[in-house]
């Protein structure tokens, strides 16, 4: 079993202004020669990873060049989405390939969901202690 990395929960605010702790993960996303340090929500209820439109542009992605299109659910259903694959690094772990739904939405933060963040990493949430731990898959 790999060593674990530990992260604290971070206070976030919803649209009503309510503050709650959430598992927000710092991560480095890489596309060709571009890399970007960002934060994203670990969302075990999300079917897919989500990449906000502006972050994709900052990584040098070209919207028109992405040929895989699909529909997302919830609030994101109102925006076009296209599939992209990036390299991603969490802490000292080796880079992995993560597939993202690149959405035209700009007011969303990155989301890490079942496909395929939770297929690459094992995550243990300790909400009562306001921390979570991540390991690479066994």
């Amino acid at each position: 079993m790999s060593d674990a990395l530990y992260f604290p929960y971070v206070n976030v605010s919803n649209s009503l202004g309510e503050i709650t702790p959430r598992p927000i993960l710092p991560i480095t996303l890489i596309h060709q020669s571009q890399s970007l340090d960002t934060l994203g929500l670990l969302d075990s209820g999300a079917d897919v990873n989500v990449l906000p439109f502006q972050l994709g542009l900052q990584l040098g992605l070209v919207w028109e060049a992405q040929r895989h299109q699909f529909q997302l659910s919830g609030n994101l259903a109102n925006f076009e989405a296209r599939g992209v694959i990036l390299s991603a690094t969490v802490g000292s772990f080796i880079p992995v390939r993560l597939a993202f739904a690149w959405t035209r939405a700009t007011s969303v933060s990155p989301i890490f969901g079942q496909v395929n963040f939770f297929m690459e990493y094992d995550v243990c949430f300790s909400r009562s202690q306001l921390k979570f731990e991540i390991r690479t898959k066994s």
Partner: peptide, 12 residues
């Protein structure tokens, strides 16, 4: 952060 979870996006 706003949470916009794609919780029912099996096709995607």
């Amino acid at each position: 952060y706003e949470v916009w979870s794609p919780a029912d996006s099996g096709d995607a």
